[in-house]
Nucleic acid binder design. Structure first.
Lengths: 364, 364
DNA sequence: AATTGCAATGAGTCCGGTCGCTTCTGTGCG
DNA sequence: CGCACAGAAGCGACCGGACTCATTGCAATT
């Protein structure tokens, strides 16, 4: 029975070769066929781990050029059980602080030849969890993330399994995870001490967003500590979530007979709201009210007056966290000792606190 | 010959099943075995495209729960020739403008259930090219990017082949690519007209970074147009790349007998440099010199004086570009007509231009 | 001269899903 | 009562590389 009539059931034999490069992307076996070698040789030429004779390598390279062959990274990742990609979860990207963190992460990843899959949690633990699962399904080799609301994040070793993970900017309840933080408490304490000791303030208010955010709360604790140490009474308000609320809060505070003479805000957003209220009420800074905030920004130099702030090393934090992750990935340092790295902050004294320097003074 | 002595060459028979779930991640066939069905049934239950009897589906779901099974997205992407991911290339992430663009891209991608692979080009055409190739190797389903230096970018349809692509913020030489821009020229023209017509300025200088950057150049063209229309002489300087250079440029300009009475800067960075120089020289704005810039920012309200700027819709641009990309991806609209979408800008009049409004006035 | 050792290379298998087609079962209808 | 048909589930191939193991050829060693 030579030349069986085209029975579709008969082509079960090793007829693996498809029509030579039609319009699909060229594969390794296309290259191999053209170069007259086996696929394994092509693979070896590409990876360069094993010796291939110079002549053969040359033929392979020519074939690659000719076909414009590009290895399929997806297949490689799939087969090798290693995707050369890491996941990054942050609350938002429109916040310059987070954007700077993300920038550092992508930079470090690039240095290691890794891709970054990025996603936002919107500060929502459920979104965060879903995104983390998604990345795990994508088989990222590791993840760095800024946990959403403290004590509500459901991210833990249980979810991640053996995938290396580093949290940063905020801690996680699961103590076994690595985490990189900054000295929020110390930073807040020092700047409050500055207001007390250098400028003689006794009534200093702290205005912040939600206390459920770790950084807001931790900075508050630094503020409280400094006030207690100086024997002063604390005056803190939270949930300052809009310009209107800030206006209401500020009015209420300044109407009291023991009105504060200085204000510390919890972060950029709170700073913006409070500054808006200050402008609205026509208050003079630092004459009527001294001001200090958290987070430096590009044009802080040019506000009126220039703002005194606690500057966080956003990029350095991202870099340290990502390097730690790569330690885990490459050296597979299994002792999940739950490292806790705390980076120092800088205090940038400009003029809103009452200092008279023409140029900013930075202390660490 | 029952129970052949363990000859390793004999296990060629369909002995594909490995030891039932040891410590590796559970796979679909683990689930299938536990549920007593074929892998295909599990696959169908998961994708939900084909009917499966309720009872069987239940058994499968139970097995999935029990094994904590997660489908391997990598395998799925590999087999399906579709990765459900898009690539994003931007110059930097630490620039708030780009960060806002990136935020919009990730948001839209999430709405479509896609992942975003992000990377930075550092304004370098070679890096950009390499990163684009890398993403193609990763088999992204599409890409959005902000091209690096105009006329130097090597990104084109030739490289991308059939992969859908949308450029934004800046155009590309390859006319066949879709691109989303903002009205840079018009924005610059309008704000210069404002300085001329509302505040009577006749000598207006433009200070910008490198003209090889598309946006810098295009805004310059709007400036030139407005000056020509009013019969005024243009006075533009480029390569203002640091605070020192800005200081030198400004000094030189102000020392001339026909010193400018108003300044327009090309973008945030130039604004920062020039403001620094202005502060250094103790110049009064807008009294001695009126000021307007490109790009709004969070605390522009609170600079001294509040800055008049052209505000670009960063997030909207990212959103429009990404939606366009998904049109290409899902509807495979092959007519690569090289769409060109241009979004309007807003002019935010605060007080640095000489306006007296207490609150900013926004015109479109 | 025969054996051993090493370098170069290829055949086959596997990674974990998905797709097309086949098989099986049960039912409706002539 | 038999046949056609539809729905449910399974089988095997396959996506594109990389790894294991086997094979070949040739030079060095005994």
């Amino acid at each position: 029975m030579p030349e069986a009539t085209g029975n579709p059931n008969l082509n079960k034999s090793k007829l693996r070769d498809r029509a030579p490069v039609a319009h699909r992307k060229p594969t390794m076996s296309d290259v191999a066929r053209l170069a007259g070698v086996g696929t394994m040789t092509v693979s070896r030429v590409l990876s360069g781990t094993v010796r291939v004779s110079a002549e053969t390598a040359q033929r392979v390279h020519t074939a690659i050029e000719q076909l414009k062959y590009r290895p399929n990274e997806l297949a490689r990742a799939f087969r090798g059980q290693r995707s050369r990609s890491i996941g990054l979860i942050i609350p938002y990207l429109y916040d310059p602080f987070f954007a700077n963190c993300a920038h550092a992460v992508t930079s470090v990843a690039k240095e290691h030849g890794y891709s970054v899959i990025i996603t936002t949690s919107n500060e929502d633990p459920d979104t965060e969890y879903a995104e983390a699962e998604h990345m795990l399904e994508r088989h990222v080799d590791g993840m760095v993330f800024i946990p959403s609301r403290f004590r509500q994040t459901r991210l833990s070793r249980t979810l991640f399994g053996k995938t290396p993970v580093v949290a940063f900017d905020r801690p996680v309840p699961d103590q076994s995870l690595d985490v990189v933080l900054v000295q929020n408490t110390t930073g807040a304490r020092h700047i409050v001490q500055h207001l007390i000791e250098e400028h003689g303030h006794k009534r200093i208010a702290y205005i912040g967003l939600s206390r459920t955010l770790f950084t807001i709360n931790t900075r508050f604790l630094g503020y409280r500590r400094a006030m207690q140490d100086a024997g002063l009474e604390e005056d803190a308000t939270f949930e300052c979530n809009s310009e209107e609320i800030a206006l209401r809060i500020l009015k209420e505070k300044l109407d009291r007979k023991d009105a504060p003479t200085a204000i510390l805000t919890s972060n950029t957003l709170a700073t913006r709201y409070v500054l808006s209220a200050i402008a609205h009420l026509g208050i003079k800074v630092p004459g009527d009210l001294a001001f200090a905030g958290f987070d430096d920004f590009d044009l802080a130099e040019f506000t009126s007056p220039p703002l005194t702030v606690v500057r966080q090393p956003a990029q350095e934090m991202g870099r340290v966290a990502t390097n730690l992750l790569f330690d885990r990935i490459t050296r597979g340092e299994t002792p999940q000792t739950g490292n806790r790295i705390v980076l120092p902050v800088e205090i940038v004294l400009r003029r809103s606190c009452g200092c008279k320097h023409k140029n900013p003074v930075v202390i660490s």
